[in-house]
Structures are given as C-alpha cells and as structure tokens.
Design a protein around this nucleic acid. Sequence first.
DNA 1: CTGAAAGCGCTTACAG
DNA 2: CTGAAAGCGCTTACAG
Lengths: 350, 350
Amino acid sequence: MATSRQVAQLAGVSRATVSRVLNGSPRISAEARDRVHAAMKALGYEPDVVAQNLARQRSYMIALGLYHEGEELAISTLSRTENYYYLDMIKYIDRGVAAAGYDLFLPSLAQNKAPENYIRSLRARRIAGTIMLALDLADVRIQALLQSAIPTVFIDTRGQGEHATYVDSNHMDGARQVTEHLLSLGHRRIAIVTGPLTDPASTERLLGFQQTLAHAGIALDPGLLCLTGWNTDEAYRATRTFLEQRHDFTAIIAGSDMMALGILRALHERGLRVPQDVSLTGFDDLAISQYIVPSLTTVKADRETMSKGAVQRLMALVEGEDAVPPLIVPSQLIIRESTGPAPSPSMQEK
Amino acid sequence: MATSRQVAQLAGVSRATVSRVLNGSPRISAEARDRVHAAMKALGYEPDVVAQNLARQRSYMIALGLYHEGEELAISTLSRTENYYYLDMIKYIDRGVAAAGYDLFLPSLAQNKAPENYIRSLRARRIAGTIMLALDLADVRIQALLQSAIPTVFIDTRGQGEHATYVDSNHMDGARQVTEHLLSLGHRRIAIVTGPLTDPASTERLLGFQQTLAHAGIALDPGLLCLTGWNTDEAYRATRTFLEQRHDFTAIIAGSDMMALGILRALHERGLRVPQDVSLTGFDDLAISQYIVPSLTTVKADRETMSKGAVQRLMALVEGEDAVPPLIVPSQLIIRESTGPAPSPSMQEK
DNA sequence: CTGAAAGCGCTTACAG
DNA sequence: CTGAAAGCGCTTACAG
C-alpha cells in the first residue's frame, strides 16, 4: 500500500498538498493537482481510511441498529420473520448512505452485553450517525442515544430529540383503508391478530380500526382482539388457541404479512378456507405476499420512501441541522386473493 | 471521551502501562493493574478503536460480501428473495464473529463501482478477513481477492487459495435424498426447475438427481429440465411458460424454497393442486416453508453448522494458519405436505 | 497556493 | 515490571 508520503515524493509536493488534492480543496494550483493525480494513479494510491478517521476525528460510518423488545441491537435479528419487513429498507439505506460517501457498520452483540457502553463504543468508532429500526424507545440504550449528541433517525418508532428525528408510516390510515375494504365486502365481525400494544404501531392501527368500525356503527368486540408477538410462529400459535375459543368472525386483520402467513396455516389446519370462509389481510406487502396461495391482501408500507427519507434526514443531522422534521409516509391498500365477500351465514348486509 | 493519557495520569502510571493493562499483557504488576482498572472505571474510559487500529495496523473488522451474478457485493442484495437463505447465516456469522471480538463491516456500493479498487479499499480499512456468500468465482474482484493475502472464507462457492477456504453443503447427496423420496412415492416423470448451471450448486444437484434416476433405471428427460434464475419471480415466470409446453410430469424439484413458492403459484394459477396433482420440493428449508400451504418438503442445508464452520475457519486463517481445509456439511431431507403419492394415471408402479 | 509542524490516541520495540 | 520515545498515516491551523 502506497502512502501519501510516497505520492508527495513522486509528485514533488508536500504531504499537505496531497491531502488537499485528495479532499478537493479549492486553493490548489491546477498544475499541482495534476501532478498529484498522476502520482496517485501511478502508485495505485488509496488513502488509509483508519488514519483519516483518526486525524479528522470522525469516520464515515453509519451504524445500523435493529431492535425488538428484549432482543439485541444487531443484524442477527434480520433472520427473524418479523424483521423480513426491514430487508428492503436496508437495501435503500445502504444505497443512500453509499451515495453520500458513507459505509454501514453493524454493531454486533459483543458490544451490547454492556448496555451502558453502547454509546461509548459508537463514539470510540467515531460513528457519524445511526439509523435505528423497529425499536423500543424505553430501552436504556435508546435513552442514552437520545441523550447523546449522536445524530439518529428512528424508523418505525417515533423518537425525537435535538439530534434525532424519525420516519414512520401512517398506521392509522392503513388500518382505516383495510377496515373499510372488509366492511365493503360485507364483513361485520372482524378479528384482529396483532403485535403487542406496547408497540405504538399496533396501537395506532387498533385506533384506526376502531374508529372506522365506529363510523359504520359497529362496536369493537374485545373478544375478537388477539394480541401476540410479531413473528410467524407466535401468530400461528396464538391463532390456534384463539380458534378454539372463537370462530364467529368472517375476517382477520393480521398485524403483518408474516403474521398472516402463520394465521393462514392455523386456519388451514382447522379446515377453514381463505377467503371463502375467512378473509385475511396483512400489513407491509412483502415480496412473498403476492406468491403465497391465496395471495395476500395487505397494506403496503412504502419502504423505499421511508428509507430514502431516513437517509436524507440523517445526513441533515450529521451536517449539523437541528430540529429536522419527521416524515410520515402514506400507506396503501393492495387487494389480492385473500379477501372476499363475507360468507352468507354471517351478519346481514347493512 | 476520556483518553488513555487521562487514565494514566489518574492511575499515576505511563500510557504504555495503561495500554498493557488494556491488552491484558502478562508482564504487569497486580498493583498497577488494579490502579489502572480503577482509573478506567472512574473515567468511564473506552479505548479509541480508530487509534488502536492505526497503531496496530489492523482492525477487528470482518467484511461480509454477498454476491449473485451481475449483482453488487453488498448487503443490499439481502432483500432479494434468492438471498433469504442467507439470513440465518448472517445471524450465526455475526454471533461467531462477535464472540471472537470482531465486528462486521458491510462494504457498500460506492466501493464496488471501481472493481479494481475493491481489494485496496478492504486493505485501507485494515479488514482482518472477509466472508463471501454466494458468489461468482469468475468475477474479477473475487479473483483479486484470491490473489491477495486477505483471509477469506467462501460460503456456497468453492474458492480456495493460500489464504482462502470454503464451506459448502452436500448438494449432490441432497438431490439424491429428495429424488429417492419422490421415486419411493411412485413418481417416475420428475421435472427440475432450478438455477443456472453456471452455478456449481445447480450442477451438483443435477448430477445427484441424474445418478439416482439412473440407479432406478430411468433416463433423464432433458425436456423436463427447466433452467431459470434463483428468485421467486423468475421461477414463477419460467414455470408458467414451462407448463404451456409440458405437463406430463407428476413432481417438480425446485432449486430452492423461494423458487418453489413461485412454482406453487404458477401451478395454482393453472389449476394444479399440490400434492394431489403434482408433488413439489424445495431446497434450503427456510422459516416460511413450514407455514405456506401446503407446507414444503425440502432439503435442509444446515446453515448453522456452515456458518459456524466458516467463522472458525476464518479465524484460523486470520491467525496465520494456511491450508485450512474446507467443510462440506450434510444435507437432510425434510418431508412435509407438498409431496404425496404419484397420481394414478401416471406411470405404473414398479 | 504551499509547506513545516503539530496533532489525532493509541501501541510497541527498546532500555532499564 | 515500567517508562520515554518513536511511530501508525493522515489532516489542518498557522505562516508565508
């Protein structure tokens, strides 16, 4: 590996000049610039990122955290079905961050063992900022992050602070759309199988559901509310238990597409057909949702817009802007095979 | 952020001593150690990783590359359905790497624009080693990596070199198991819908399939071989086209679970039921495969063993061992709902 | 526009 | 066992 010293020598300039050329300083003569560029080419010079980071006292790395209640803040959790939703987001985040000249860093488990060191370890790496996915605002590490001066954008959690803002989808409106869709198909007894209400996304959706029902003159039956975890397996198990107690509904709104997959199986095992016997909807619109049989009616979260918005906001925070406003992205209902008219022996049409 | 200088001052020792304590040097007095530890606690000291990396001329970061033909070597590709298979692997890799005191680094797109700089940029970061998933050995960057002294473990691609080894699953035996399973169910006309034969995994499986058929006295009908891409959508489209030409088979072996999902939809749209009309099998055993309806018979790749083996081998390479032997992990057939007896109007039982 | 010098916060032979 | 000093490869006021 060639060093800036060698480049300087070959170009017949000082290392300071090499550095200036490298960093696109304006006060440099065209001639010096050309000589340095030629020398860099000749030597195959690539600046030492580690040394740059030390000298500049900052790095061009963005930490990416992933979090679900009780879980670690690590990429490991990506393999959990409840996190498939984040895969595209990571794609767009990676691209956005790369375009801005940053790299993604994934803090691993080792650092999470001592929560009180979380911030310190980010600092020790001169992390420029962090993007946090799906987390629990009450977590001590998150609180520490909010207190710190580290620029942060939260996705799917509404964390705000002097150096923090968020990006989220409009859960309430999504719930409204899907509820109206089911109502228009004649469904009156609609069950909800969703994630814990400690998660604001669940609560907002529940609210949208409730309001829409109320508009239609229908009271929410608390016995049709089934709370469970966000992943496929938990939804599957919860639905099995739920079906043993109740089956006087004609539709289920699942908290996510991956949950819907588990619910679909539970219904299947019970001999209930979708959508002939029960209509089923999800949230998210994952890649697989259009392929499963039946394909899934769902509320699409515009993850591309959210991710790009997150990167753009993070860069603003990194540049020193404060009071960066949050972004709420619209949700969109996508109708597929899993929803159909309410079966006739159900409630009468209005 | 406290520095080692402040720690030294508070403890009444030199910075060299602080450094020695930090790195667990044996030649240090218990008394000095205690004083330094106390000072570190008092100041909330966390060593500056960037400075350590520069001084040591190495970092404790492992680069993780992901690659499919024509694609970038980036985490972005994780969102493609053909890469869901790698999600658990990343989990185990992250954990293994963290346990060894390393962090994961995801080289992003920006660096890939200039392929000739790929190695340099890894070097410039003092990357300790790399783990490469699913890639094309012929790629120029991979060739450069093999030439370089950077320790590398390939997963699912058999790259070897002085500083490189690989971990793979036993594709041929997996193909044998699934073929025997279908034969035992009375299937005689079996179609294969798989990824391109430029990928050795496909070729090995085809070989296993072919050999097993031959053992049973059956010749491979080339018209029952359908080559396409690894993702869900490509498999779906290819199967649709395929079904317009042929439907004189009673079973399909898909190249992966995600491909099977697309094939399932194509069959569904054609009015063919699984497994009553056509049996269907996958490869991989993804989390969703047990939930989709019908649940999928598949060949499980033991991703936990593969990943752990990869980390262990990478650490050996990083420690300077050479000629680290590769690891081939056994495959295991998992029988679920998507396979059943060949329908009666098919070939006669033997 | 350009260079000499100090500094970023560690580590590590070299002496003792 | 411990310290003084040099070094890792850059960047950046400070002069000129």
